[in-house]
Each structure stands twice: as structure tokens, then as C-alpha cells.
Design a protein around this nucleic acid. Sequence first.
DNA 1: TTTCTAACTTGTAATGATTACAAACTAATA
DNA 2: TATTAGTTTGTAATCATTACAAGTTAGAAA
Lengths: 138, 138
Amino acid sequence: MKIILEDLLEELKKNNIRLSHQRLKVLEFLVLNQCHPTADQIYNGLHKEVPTLSKTTVYNTLNSLTEANLVRVINIEDNETRYDINTFNHGHFKCQQCKEIYDFGIDIDSIYTDDLNGFKTTDKNVYFKGVCPKCSNA
Amino acid sequence: MKIILEDLLEELKKNNIRLSHQRLKVLEFLVLNQCHPTADQIYNGLHKEVPTLSKTTVYNTLNSLTEANLVRVINIEDNETRYDINTFNHGHFKCQQCKEIYDFGIDIDSIYTDDLNGFKTTDKNVYFKGVCPKCSNA
DNA sequence: TTTCTAACTTGTAATGATTACAAACTAATA
DNA sequence: TATTAGTTTGTAATCATTACAAGTTAGAAA
Ligand SMILES: [Mn+2]
Ligand SMILES: [Mn+2]
Ligand SMILES: [Zn+2]
Ligand SMILES: [Zn+2]
């Protein structure tokens, strides 16, 4: 499923979020770098191109976009929050060695449990950890 | 599945972790308070009984126990790490309103994906968010 | 039981990610 | 073009967690 910047802008307008220069750049960065970057990586990645950008703005933007369901927050590790422009149904695998986060297809809605009758579920996350093939073979 | 303190002590010995007074108290607290407490809640909960306990020790202990797979770390929210003495196969649901974390039964190993062929998976987590029945009906 | 020592605990200071805040700036509307 | 609510920015504050070094202890060995 390909993510198109124009569609995202449409969504921003729907959510009454102004299309500021900084926000567009953060969004663009997320579309071009679908490696689940941290706020700090986004800030550093944009710094040359947008030297006036402040880290606070990166955080503010990410929080707005999350609020509007345009980005998904990934909390696999306790010491780093990562962000994903891909909000479709998928799971995340973090390699403990190279630290990379891989996407994997999974139909989270097919997970069945009857312990959650009466619960309103708005958010579902599946996080795996281990060692990726690259690191296993090294 | 009931968790028995004696079994845990056996595990500690196997892992060459000394049975210090502080560690036993932290373990006991986790067995008695299976509400997925934070390090701070553990520290405060034990403070009357063990006034000399330091917060550093609580963190050190939790890290040791995690290393030995005696406790499970829960990172649903980016700003709070919670700890679970129950390491059996189950999922977690966090109510956004009352902040409580509920356990739910789920066979995580039955989740199928062929995107992870060649990956060594050591850790699987399923986190849901939403509103619990208590808060829905209030 | 006594001795010994690596492992553990403790308090304090450091770290680092995220947020609060207030002044300056700007997107979007009329 | 003027207006203004929303946005950005830099700095300071917050808060969870870790680093460190000095004192203490669990557990093994004598
Ligand atoms: Mn992803
Ligand atoms: Mn649990
Ligand atoms: Zn790897
Ligand atoms: Zn609730």
C-alpha cells in the first residue's frame, strides 16, 4: 500500500491542521523515510534543508499528526519513541542487534479473544523482538 | 495460572541471582500486586515496610529480573514502563480513561505471518488501547 | 562459626527525551 | 491588504532512568 503525500495533505485539511512549511517537511520526511525514525532523527534529517526548524516543532507536529491518525506511534523500547507514516494494519519486529524495525503483514483484527467483550478497542499493536536474518547470518 | 513465590526463588538461584532482602521484597510486591505497577509504584508501595530501600535498587532489581525472564516489561505508553510478574502468553489492554491495564488471553504463537521467515523471535507483545466497560458505562 | 569477597545497595549526580511557556511569526480567510 | 488564531522557536523545566563510588551483605569456603 503506497502512501501519497497529496492524500495526506487532504487529510490535514479535513482535520483543520494548517499546512505550514515545517509540517509539510516533517510529513515529507516520514513518507521518504519509512524506517520508523525517532523525533531526533527527523529533526537531524531536516536540519540542513530547514535550518530554522526547532525540535519542539518536530514534537508538536508529530503529536498533531498522531492525534489526527496520520502517523502511528511505536513504543517497542522504553527509551525511544518511533513514528510510522504507515497506519495500515501491520506488525513490527525489532532486531536486538542492528536495532532495525521491520514491518510484517498481520491481520490484527483476526486475533480472537473473548476476554475483551464490552471493551472498546481503538488501537492495536503487535511488537516482536529477536534477531533478523542479516544479523543471524553474520 | 498461579504464580508462587517459592518457584520464583528457585528460578533466582538457577540464574545465580542472590536472594537479597530487597529483591525478595520487590518480587513479593509483584506477586501480590499484579496490576502491572511502575517502578515508582513499587518503590512507594514498599517504602513503609522497607524504609531504607532506594529507587536505584528497585530499577536494578527489575532489570535483573527482566534479564532472567522472571518479569515482563510492558511499554504501551512512551512515558511509563510497567512490570508484570506474569510471563505467560497473554495480551494487554490499556484503558485510556482509567489508565488500568487489563490482561486478556491470547495465543500469540498462533499469529501467523510468513514475512518473518528467517527471523529469530524471542519476545512477542500484543498491546491494545481503548475504553474499558467500567468507563464506558460511567 | 568465622572469614572473605564478589555482588549488592544506597544516595547523589548526571543524562536524555519530552513538555511548558511566552514572544515572535504566518497561513488562511475575508 | 488586514486580521487573527494557530504555529514556530528557543529556553527552561520536568521526570524517568542510569552512572558512579562508597559502604554493606549473601553465600561460600575455611
Ligand atoms: Mn511500520
Ligand atoms: Mn499482564
Ligand atoms: Zn539485525
Ligand atoms: Zn477504564
